[in-house]
Write a protein that binds this DNA or RNA. Structure first.
Lengths: 215, 215, 215, 215
DNA sequence: TATGAATGAGTATTCATTCAT
DNA sequence: AATGAATGAATACTCATTCAT
């Protein structure tokens, strides 16, 4: 076969077929992830099992192993997606804003909103499987790293612009992270105590605290 | 039996026996709780099972059901103890101190120290079984309420003394709680990222933030 | 309660009940072992599974774990029994005989007969789970040791009586063991090649070889 | 196509292609067998699986079915190779030697050496899949038959030369086989009991026994 | 020639819980 | 007060094999 020649009809067919199967494969993979995600939402991390995922998509449990090496691989793929959405949410919230402090506020609000909107995912991302986030290497371009980088960049931007008083970017980032995570985490674990209204309050208070304390 | 009459010898015997048995009962109950606590420390919430608790104390699994209605009851009793110790730790740290802000700082440091010293208990208390804390009724004199009251009192004291600027005690308490919990929670879930050294740093930063922002 | 006093009716009843339950327990344990043994015979070592054992006795798989810690424990118990029967067979064959060489011959014939009568057990005992026999400590009074001791004693006796030429008892025992095992093992693995008739022949030849070579 | 006519250019091309593909086919077949053999060595008969073989050669499991009808077919092909090497080893050990008894001794030593050098293959050849050896038809020129014929020939030669006392060649061969197999088999199954040193001893004792008993 | 997709059957093991004694 | 017996449900995972392409 000449590499330069146009593909024959058979070749075109074959490639089409390959592409179709490839896309079908991606579809099923996606369906598995979706089902797994739903299951997390409904049953939480503890109630999550491969068998139930399989049942949900109407395939045999074995089939899952064609798409993911094992349970952890599936969970990690799920978390990759989740961090992707998380990072996107953060970026979408902060990108349009230029004022450094407003940017920071938007980041915080987006962070909390994500946590409250996807509490069980958040729980898995930051609590149940902290090891996943922990495994990330700084150099990587992975979603889990990217999410954190948005925070870091926003802080750095605020400091650089003089809106935030000078300080160690990493340390300040970590402090802000802890505050946001604390709020979300309490709200998720004790929704009756830390109701959405109280979250709104404490969010506001936290912002004031930060403005007063860090500017 | 007449409540007002003096107890007969038999009655006295019976009561003594009852007391002995009662105290024996309490002993075994305590042994169960201790074993359960140890198991939590060693295996975490997920690895915790009644069978292993039973094996550890040398009784049959069934016996546990004589002292606790079910797994959750045992866990809740355990959490009662844990909150008791937690509250005690907070009180011991704050009681000797009279300066309002120093008191607050001591509270925060004790909170974080407790979390890092008993990470698996902390995790169960505030993350895995937030429902337990949530069930508490404000009126109760339970440990879980008491712990939170220490925080509230310390904040109220600082405000009353003018050390902290006026504000809603509950709201400020919640904010402080969120900060402390955020630090501890991140440190527990991602110990390689949030190392003890970074905890110390962020703890310091948090204090500064609070001094600047709330005083 | 006075330790010296006669048991009360209740005590007698209780003990009777305990004994009954104890014996019932032993019965089920025995039933499990029997079913397991049958399963070995029918399916061989590879086809052996706890679930099938359970099904066979009409109990749930879980029940087996009440009697045996795990699969290996069951298998080892089974092998203990098998070595017990094996040792008994060897002893029953050799005990009545006083003539040293006749004793040795009887031993050999009993060994081979056992192997051919219980081929799948033999296979597990000496081939599949050689680790079990290997684990035995010389000092123990276990069946698996006892079996081998019969051989050793018989050899020692023959040497002591002058019927066998002097030599290292262990070495000679091992040689005889290898011969017997070789015959049995070939007969089990390739029954169509090493038919019972050929076993009889080779057994005879082996005896002659030994008489000529070792006396 | 006329068989007598000269091949056209196209035909020649076609045949070359067929040959190339044929040889490629043989190559992959060989790669499968090699990987399978390695896997046996590493995991033993029980740990052997087609999937792992496939993974090892970088092909899909399905591909193996293009070269072998099923798992057993692959194993049998493997055993053919193994018996081939086995027979070769025996022949190489005995061929150079002319003295009948020395030849016999060399055979025995080579047999045992092979078993100890390739214990897992030996186990499959003679224990796990005795059915393979058993299926062999005497008339065939297969390796598995050839191996046994070396033994038979050596015995026959020793008898014919008067070095071994007259007797049924098959019976004596079987006896010798049993002895060699017994030694190897015990050494493989219980390496801690039947250590290499003890194998050397028992090998020596066996030889002496045979010299004394069969010459 | 080679593979991707899929499955059904099977494995050992753990767990919380109930019931009768 | 304590236990022994028993179970049903669940889990992750592996395997040989088939089918359509």
């Amino acid at each position: 076969m000449n590499a330069a020649s146009k593909p024959t009809r058979v070749q075109r067919l074959s490639q089409a077929s390959r592409q179709r199967r490839e896309s079908e494969k991606q579809e099923l993979r996606h369906a598995i992830l979706q089902a797994a995600s739903d299951l997390f939402v409904e049953r939480g991390y503890e109630g999550f099992s491969l068998r139930q995922v399989a049942e949900r998509i109407g395939y045999s449990p074995t089939t899952i192993y064609l798409y993911f090496a094992d349970k952890d691989s599936l969970i990690f793929a799920l978390l990759d997606d989740a961090f992707d959405q998380f990072g996107t949410a953060l970026r979408q919230a902060t990108d349009p804003i230029t004022d450094p402090l407003a940017k920071l506020e938007a980041l915080g609000r987006a962070y909390v909103r994500f946590g409250l909107t996807h509490p069980l995912h958040y729980q898995v991302m930051f609590v149940m499987r902290g090891d996943f986030l922990q495994q990330a290497r700084a150099a990587e371009t992975e979603p889990r790293i990217a999410s954190f980088r948005v925070l870091r960049d926003t802080v750095a931007y605020a400091i650089a612009s003089g809106s935030l008083r000078p300080g160690d970017v990493d340390a300040i980032s970590l402090l802000l992270w802890a505050i946001m995570h604390g709020i979300v985490s309490l709200a998720i674990s004790m929704p009756l105590i830390v109701t959405p209204e109280r979250v709104a309050e404490v969010e506001q208070d936290a912002l004031m605290l930060i403005w007063r304390g860090l500017t």
